[in-house]
Structures are given as C-alpha cells and as structure tokens.
Simulated assay, not measured.
Amino acid sequence: MGTLSNGRGTVSFENSHAPGLDWRKAGRTDLDPIVKDCVILAAAPDAKDHPHDRIPDGTRMVAISDDKDTDSPVLFMSRVEISKFFDGVLAGEFDHLRASEEELKAALELASTV
C-alpha cells in the first residue's frame, strides 16, 4: 500500500495506475481524505523499456498525479525533465498560471463546506 504525505502527516493512499508509491503533496494543503486538492509527486521505479528513445533503461523517474481520484492518470517524467520544470517554476515562468487570491479564497470556502 502506498502513502500520501504533506510533511505534517501521512495517510494511506493508492493510485490504481501506480500502486505502492509514496506520494508527496505541498505542505500548504490538507491531508483530510475529504479535502483532496493537490498535484502529487512520487519517486517512481527506474525506466525500463520506455517508449521514448531519450529515456534509457535505468533513468530515474518521477510520477505526477492528482489526489482527488485514486484512479487519476499518472504521468511519468525523468528527474532531469522535472528538475528543468522546477527551475522554470522557481524563475517565475509559470506565474501567469497561478490561482488568483479570489480563486484561492473560493477554494478554501468550498473545502470548508465539504
């Protein structure tokens, strides 16, 4: 059985497309099983027979999914790819995609009614 952690606590969690992984979500989100609200990442098994020729066997991989549904699709990226993406996030290249204060407030209000 896999787990889901936010740095403050850990709960059981199993994605049907990537069983047994230990997922991590941002510490600013809730672990309450009712309030599922985040992108989640996990260290995935090393690549083996990956369909893309730039992902050789043994490449360390990261799984990305959504915690709202244990049957959510899982995207597998190499650690190099995810590191380049994180660099872009840290550089502010995706700030235009962030939720507005109003959207964050509305999400918090919705979560408190569930």
Score class of each variant (00 low, 15 high):
Met1Glu: 14
Gly2Ala: 04
Gly2Tyr: 04
Leu4Pro: 03
Leu4Gly: 05
Ser5Phe: 05
Ser5Pro: 04
Ser5Ala: 11
Asn6Phe: 11
Asn6Gly: 10
Gly7Leu: 04
Arg8Lys: 14
Gly9Phe: 07
Gly9Val: 01
Thr10Val: 14
Val11Leu: 01
Val11His: 06
Val11Lys: 06
Phe13Tyr: 12
Phe13Leu: 00
Phe13Asp: 00
Glu14Ile: 05
Asn15Met: 03
Asn15Ile: 03
Ser16Phe: 11
Ala18Asp: 06
Pro19Thr: 09
Asp22Glu: 10
Trp23Leu: 00
Arg24Gly: 10
Lys25Asp: 04
Lys25Val: 04
Lys25Pro: 05
Ala26Met: 02
Gly27Tyr: 01
Gly27Asn: 06
Arg28Val: 10
Arg28Gln: 11
Arg28Tyr: 14
Arg28Pro: 02
Leu31Ser: 11
Leu31Thr: 07
Asp32Ile: 01
Ile34Met: 03
Ile34Pro: 01
Val35Gly: 02
Val35Pro: 03
Cys38Val: 02
Cys38Ala: 06
Val39Ile: 01
Val39Arg: 02
Val39Ser: 01
Ile40Leu: 04
Leu41His: 13
Ala44Gly: 07
Ala44Gln: 04
Pro45Gly: 10
Ala47Leu: 12
His50Cys: 07
Pro51Leu: 08
Asp53Lys: 07
Asp53Ala: 09
Arg54Phe: 12
Ile55Gly: 02
Ile55Ser: 02
Pro56Ala: 05
Pro56Trp: 00
Pro56Asn: 01
Pro56Glu: 00
Asp57Thr: 11
Gly58Pro: 08
Thr59Glu: 02
Arg60Cys: 09
Arg60Glu: 10
Arg60Leu: 06
Arg60Asp: 10
Met61Lys: 00
Met61Ser: 07
Val62Met: 00
Ala63Lys: 02
Ile64Glu: 03
Ser65Leu: 03
Ser65Tyr: 11
Asp66Gln: 02
Asp67Arg: 00
Asp67Pro: 05
Lys68Cys: 13
Lys68Tyr: 09
Lys68Asn: 13
Asp69His: 03
Asp71Phe: 08
Ser72Leu: 08
Val74Cys: 05
Val74Phe: 01
Leu75Met: 07
Leu75Tyr: 03
Phe76Glu: 02
Met77Trp: 01
Met77Glu: 08
Ser78Ala: 11
Ser78Tyr: 04
Arg79Gly: 13
Arg79Leu: 08
Glu81Thr: 00
Glu81Ile: 00
Ile82Pro: 10
Ser83Glu: 14
Lys84His: 10
Lys84Glu: 12
Phe85Tyr: 11
Phe85Gln: 14
Phe86Asn: 15
Asp87Gly: 15
Asp87Ala: 15
Gly88Phe: 04
Gly88Cys: 02
Val89Trp: 15
Leu90Lys: 13
Ala91Pro: 04
Ala91Leu: 09
Gly92Asp: 10
Gly92Leu: 09
Glu93Ser: 15
Glu93Gln: 14
Phe94Met: 09
Asp95Val: 08
Asp95Ala: 14
Asp95Asn: 13
Asp95Phe: 12
His96Val: 09
His96Ser: 02
Leu97Tyr: 12
Leu97Cys: 10
Leu97Ser: 09
Arg98Phe: 12
Arg98Thr: 12
Ala99Ile: 09
Ser100Pro: 00
Glu101Pro: 03
Glu102Ala: 13
Glu103Gly: 07
Leu104Cys: 08
Lys105His: 06
Lys105Pro: 00
Ala106Asn: 15
Ala106Lys: 13
Ala107Asn: 10
Ser112Asp: 15
Ser112Lys: 12
Thr113Ser: 05
Val114Thr: 09
